[in-house]
Design a protein around this nucleic acid. Structure first.
Lengths: 369, 369
DNA sequence: CTAAGTTGAGCAAACGTATTCTCGGCATGC
DNA sequence: GCATGCCGAGAATACGTTTGCTCAACTTAG
């Protein structure tokens, strides 16, 4: 019924040691015998018991992967490429999501430790330090994005937010926008702060002052994006808005639709992350790409380096991930400028323009109920 | 360094057997001793080794979860609720994605077997029968959606496609649509066929004939949806289209935007699945809900039933999942009728209407390049 | 032809836990 | 006061592998 290495040994008339060595392709075993073993293995459909293997070898061949929520479209892409790499290297992945909930974070690391993972990639933004300590204490290789401590055994993927955000700001400036709003993420997240600061810096670089009321705080959700539109409206009445992530931008565009605000002609919007969906938004969302695929690849490679690395003096454990603007069609010349020049490389964005919206909006009128 | 049940036993001055019993809360152990054990456990931050546990108990406390692709927005929601249930019941989940690739399917079941999962939920639509046999052979409890064989040890979740699709068709008919197209999924998928057939049935029920050219085949992707728009345009020039899934609908709407076709006024579109995003589309997508949350809950419960079930004569292993229409704003009265009546409960859908599109479209003109 | 070296297979000891079985101690009933 | 039960703790075994060690057989050099 349940196959056994001993059963194989019996049928192939060799010892279990030989079976084990044959299966693991250890070259010292006689090819003749190896073939005999493999024959029996195939016939019986035998698969080694991973738990037993792990127990004796001390390696579980499992990598932990901690994300914020799987339902956040930023993550599935990461999970997918991480899984692809895992199967290639005969690893399994233990996927865990902290729903921004301390309880869940705790259970998350407990699960990692119980299953004796060989390493964990913490791709969630924001995690209790004390929990991290539990993993560090057990010498589990770790990889973080941005927030990892600078100690051996933990790698860090530094994201260059500035590049992409600078490009976004300059793109908007080139389109004659001067009143540019920014919708942040949750302010307790390092990554959200970094994006906001990058925005400020980029604005200052080109001599555009940024007043406090241009910055409204969101929460990286679509609902937050919807609320954010009202917040920026009542204030400065900006002609462009940069969002801390694509979800925010999507929610904001959706709310704009409800209020009859035409994007991009009444309002240009730029997202951040470049989730796959953003290309399919209406209009397609101009956004700053932070490649999820690349992020996952780097994270996996970092883990592999730590685990293979015989010498404790491994190579560098700092990695960098760049960001850059990808132009689509959610930005246009600032209102009032559209008669003069054609929008830059935003072909097609001009269609669907409906001047009444712009008129209504610019007079500060309430949208239709 | 690495904690051990023996280390705990030593420090608590008891045997390993007692430690084991204390940890597993077996009532025969003296409360006094139990407390002593727990004290040491907490102090040392000891976590039992799951592999060793699994080895001796024969239960891995892992459920396999097979999906098509994690990046398909239909699945993350499922994974999330499946995971929630898993942590509640102290299970781990082994997530696997067949990228519609036979190789991946094979590796998928191999991984399941190697890790000795206690059960697997096959939520992908379409899977090699021979592979299933491998799992059946090892008496692994299985749960399928729609396509499972009717044998003990495998549960089945029957989806009632007819209900929701009938509602969708009747909704369109009520809006005066008579030429209704349908974009199918990949035709080798049982679930895609079921949806298509449900559409035909629903049409016939209300006396609307469905000509072959009203049905175009898609592939359940956004790109497929984009292509589908052209296919339906050159043919019957329908006023409404029902899509086999939301991704298709989203792609189609996106292409409509490019071509200057206004949705819903030139063309009504209805999706299927009700992925979370559909609510945030522009316009918000009217679609047939097939609750991902509920699906995951049923799947998990089915697995739990099989694994708990002491008696081989478990309860019923057939489950049903209903579907129903959720109205949003991607449908409107058929063109030519909009002057007379107000659209039913599609408030706001009238705004953004741009008559030139409709005019252009109805004359069969090419869209702008 | 013998001694030393090489090769490759089997024996047995781990790995960390659950669990059966044994057995001592205590209470209970006569 | 003694035999009988019962209760709870410990000793030992099993789970399915990997791997260090032993040792037989064979090869090669002298």
């Amino acid at each position: 019924m349940d196959m056994d290495i001993r059963e194989i040994a019996r049928r192939a008339k060799v010892s279990t040691a030989t079976v084990s060595r044959a299966i693991n392709r250890i070259p010292t075993v006689d090819p003749q015998l190896a073939k005999r073993v493999w024959k029996v293995v195939d016939e019986l459909g035998y698969y080694p018991n991973t738990q037993a293997r792990a127990l004796v070898s001390g390696k579980s061949r499992i990598f932990g992967l901690v994300v914020s929520e799987i339902t956040n479209p930023f993550f599935p892409e990461i999970v997918q490429t991480f899984e692809n790499l895992a199967v290639q290297h005969n690893y399994e992945i233990l996927l865990t999501s902290t729903i921004h909930d301390p309880k869940r974070m705790e259970s998350s690391v407990r699960r990692m430790i119980e299953r004796r993972v060989d390493g964990v990639a913490i791709l969630t933004f924001g995690m209790e330090d004390s929990l991290i300590e539990h993993l560090r204490f057990r010498k589990v290789p770790l990889v973080f994005v941005d927030v990892g401590p600078d100690v051996p055994g933990v790698s860090n993927i530094r994201v260059n937010y500035q590049n992409g955000i600078r490009q976004a700001v300059q793109h908007l400036a080139a389109l004659r926008h001067t009143r540019i709003a920014f919708v942040t993420g949750p302010l307790h997240l390092k990554s959200a702060l970094a994006r906001r600061d990058a925005f400020k810096t980029a604005m200052e670089e080109i001599g555009l002052p940024v007043a406090p009321e241009q910055i409204v705080v969101g929460d990286h959700t679509m609902e937050g994006g919807m609320r954010a539109l009202d917040l920026i409206s009542v204030r400065d009445c900006p002609t462009a808005v940069l969002c801390s992530n694509d979800m925010t931008a999507i929610g904001l565009m959706r709310e704009a639709y409800d209020q009859g605000i035409n994007i991009p002609h009444d309002l240009s919007v730029v997202g951040f992350d470049d989730i796959r969906l953003s290309e399919f938004m209406i209009p397609p969302l101009t956004t700053v790409q932070m490649s999820q695929t690349e992020l996952a690849q780097i994270a996996f490679k970092a883990l592999m380096n730590e685990v293979d690395g015989e010498s404790p003096a491994q190579g560098k454990s700092e990695y960098e991930l760049n960001t850059h603007l990808v132009l689509r069609r959610s930005t246009a010349l600032a209102p009032g400028h559209d008669g003069r020049l054609k929008p830059l490389m935003v072909s097609g964005a001009g269609r669907g323009l409906s001047s009444p919206y712009r008129a209504r909006r610019r007079k500060g009128m309430k949208p239709l109920a």
